[in-house]
């Protein structure tokens, strides 16, 4: 009988899988805390945003709009627009967690960020049948969550203390490069990545991260089209 890793070893493996990303997340969290305080936001509100919203890019947008005196309803809409892509993560994760009871799904949804999704899906893509893969995602999400809370607090108290010249923020795209290569498994995946990358670059200065959700949507369409074209070439109708 095959022995699968225990819950705890899945949990800690998930945490370890998140560590390279944390190198990039830590300066980002401190920069957020420092920036929010600089605009005059209270320490309590700055920290509360990190735990209640828990989404880095959207928190930056919120702080910027609050400082600009934008009406509350507009700020809420902007934040939701930035975070809309998480619906795609939710949909793509759903089949893997459908068997879990509701408490687990509520917990994992709270932790569902770019980083936790990217690392957690690596585990789900491995083809062993372990029934405990959600512990990996959980560990990965907790590692990110606690780092985000602590570095927000550090940014509030100390300012952005990590020198920019260290370029630690670069650890984030580098980790994503390492995660990207294994999922480029065929031409449709290349097409999806290529189109998404191109849209994200062209739309770099679009407001409220609308380029990100557009890029991902464009990537999905490109992947589907490429798949269909390949299928037609293999078996002409």
């Amino acid at each position: 009988m095959l022995q699968y890793p225990s819950r705890m070893s899945e949990f800690f493996a998930g945490m370890r899988g998140q560590v390279p990303l944390l190198l990039g997340v830590a300066p980002f969290g401190m920069a957020y805390g420092a920036y929010a305080i600089e605009t005059g936001l209270s320490g309590g509100m700055t920290q509360a945003m990190s735990s209640v919203i828990f989404g880095g890019a959207s928190q930056f947008v919120a702080v910027q709009l609050i400082a600009g005196g934008v009406p509350g309803a507009m700020i809420v809409l902007a934040v939701l627009l930035v975070n809309l892509r998480h619906m795609l993560y939710s949909a793509s994760l759903a089949p893997y967690v459908a068997h879990l009871d509701a408490r687990w799904r509520w917990l994992l949804a709270y932790l569902l960020t770019d980083e936790a999704y990217a690392v957690g899906m690596q585990r789900y893509r491995r083809d062993d049948e372990s029934p405990r893969k959600h512990w990996f995602l959980f560990g990965s999400g907790i590692a990110l969550w606690s780092t985000w809370q602590v570095t927000t607090a550090a940014g509030i108290l100390l300012g952005a203390a990590l020198p920019e010249s260290w370029s630690l923020d670069f650890a984030l795209p580098l980790t994503f490069i390492a995660l990207l290569i294994p999922v480029l498994t065929g031409r449709p995946a290349f097409a999806a990545a290529g189109v998404a990358g191109a849209i994200a670059v062209l739309g770099y200065d679009w407001p409220y991260a609308t380029e990100l959700i557009t890029a991902i949507g464009g990537g999905l369409v490109a992947g589907m089209l490429a798949e269909r074209l390949l299928r037609e070439r293999v078996s002409p109708a």
């Binding site: 793509s92 999704y117 990207l180 999922v183 290349f190 990545a193 998404a196 991902i216 992947g223």
Partner: peptide
């Protein structure tokens, strides 16, 4: 295709 798209 969500993974390759969002990462890139």
């Amino acid at each position: 295709f969500v993974m390759p798209a969002v990462l890139m």
